[in-house]
Amino acid sequence: MKNLLTTEDLGRETLERLLDLSDEFVEVLDREIPKVPPLRGLTVATLFFEPSTRTRISFERAAKALSADVMSFSPGTSSLKKGESLKDTALTLRAMGADIMVVRHRAVGAPWRVAEWVDVPVVNGGDGAHQHPTQALLDALTIRRHFGKLDGLEIGIVGDIRHSRVARSDVYAFSTLGAKVTLIAPRTLLPRDLDGWPCTATGDLDDVIERLDVIYLLRVQTERGGATAFPSWPEYVSRFGLSRERFARLADGAVVMHPGPMNRGVEIAPEVADSDRALVLDQVRLGVAARMAVLFTLATGRGLTREVTA
């Protein structure tokens, strides 16, 4: 694996290898000294052109637990333009010694561009409404550790699918690992073109809720125009929110997931978010291990550039 840009082209074997590796890093993170040395001397650069706290902190924690150094770039309040400035930023950080780059950008495809410009591995930390592969990996890890496997599980993803890179990444990863995925959203929040997505879609949560093993909730992305897609918030909440009443209809053993940040009282009732069947904090915790697996695989997979060119 040279870069990690998308879950669409990841085979089952690669995914499972990353999950197996993640399991080992979960064990490392549980130790009294939660740190191991394999990336000593390497520098991971995070280039986040979009605001993010949890994803960036998670990557930095993962890098440090592998003994890598971290360089952080964030544009602050200035709005960087695409094109030259993205390229110059990437080349600059590379020249400063970045050995792996994690890129988040609001433009779809930006991490692919960076991967063409630099000679080091690139991880997509989220590009527009397109892909967020490490989120899919940590979600699959959370589910696999809870259920033992994804094969045959019914997973429903509810909410603003159209603007969600998490949904797209999850659909491909989950289905590759053998789960049956259903998207649940008003038509206006489903992707315009679902052709080729390995899943089904419905507009009726109550129709499918009882057969789900995992209900995965997404927030409505008002900053990307999600709230204009339905008549009113009360109507959205009444049809797609996981209320206490709907929560009670879930099958025994079914679990609730959410990538955060949660809007309590909208897509998820506060009591549901705090229930022990909500795996939200497990997702956050396991995210560090999943990102360690990605950084470790990229760093060791092809030998690092500095040595290859030496």
């Binding site: 470790f296 760093a299 060791t300 030998g303």
Partner: peptide
């Protein structure tokens, strides 16, 4: 580690 492929 950096000279050999990813070990399991």
């Amino acid at each position: 580690l950096r000279r050999r492929p990813t070990p399991a």
